[in-house]
Simulated assay, not measured.
Amino acid sequence: MTSPTPKRRLPIGIQTFAKLREDNCYYVDKTGLAIDLIESGSAFFLSRPRRFGKSLLVDTLKELFEG
């Protein structure tokens, strides 16, 4: 019999990519889409309601640029 997989928590209120990974939270990896945004070379306006992950997206972009 195998042991059950430990449950991950939802990343409610977490706004940094590093913290999200450290806390082993659920995360939908959208780095491929972020790279597409970077390579398109356009300016983007992030108009979304509160709590829709804008800060997390910007922090993920920062982590991508820092390697």
Results as ranks from 00 to 15, higher is better:
Met1Phe: 06
Met1Trp: 08
Met1Tyr: 10
Ser3Phe: 11
Pro4Phe: 08
Pro6Arg: 15
Pro6Leu: 12
Lys7Asn: 09
Arg8Gly: 07
Leu10Trp: 14
Leu10Asp: 02
Pro11Lys: 09
Pro11Ser: 05
Pro11Asp: 04
Ile12Asn: 03
Ile12Ser: 05
Gly13Glu: 09
Gly13Met: 04
Gln15Cys: 03
Thr16Ser: 15
Phe17His: 12
Lys19Thr: 15
Leu20Gln: 08
Arg21Phe: 03
Arg21Pro: 00
Glu22Thr: 12
Asp23Ser: 12
Asp23Asn: 12
Cys25Thr: 07
Cys25Asp: 04
Tyr26Leu: 13
Tyr27Thr: 00
Asp29Leu: 12
Lys30Gln: 10
Lys30Cys: 09
Lys30Met: 11
Thr31Ala: 00
Thr31Val: 03
Gly32Gln: 14
Gly32Tyr: 13
Gly32Asn: 15
Gly32Trp: 00
Leu33Trp: 11
Ala34Tyr: 15
Ala34Ile: 14
Leu37Ser: 10
Glu39Trp: 04
Glu39Thr: 13
Glu39Gly: 08
Glu39Arg: 15
Glu39Lys: 08
Ser40Arg: 11
Ser40Gly: 05
Gly41His: 10
Gly41Ile: 11
Ala43Val: 11
Phe44Ser: 15
Phe45Met: 14
Arg48Met: 05
Arg48Thr: 05
Arg48His: 03
Pro49Met: 04
Arg50Thr: 07
Arg51Trp: 06
Arg51Leu: 04
Arg51Ile: 00
Phe52Asn: 12
Gly53Leu: 04
Lys54Asn: 03
Lys54Val: 09
Lys54Ala: 06
Lys54Pro: 06
Leu57Ser: 06
Val58Ala: 14
Asp59Phe: 03
Thr60Met: 14
Leu61Phe: 06
Lys62Ser: 01
Lys62Leu: 14
Lys62Gly: 03
Lys62Met: 14
Glu63Thr: 09
Glu63Trp: 05
Leu64Val: 14
Phe65Asn: 09
Glu66Gln: 13
Glu66Cys: 02
Gly67Trp: 11
Gly67Asp: 09
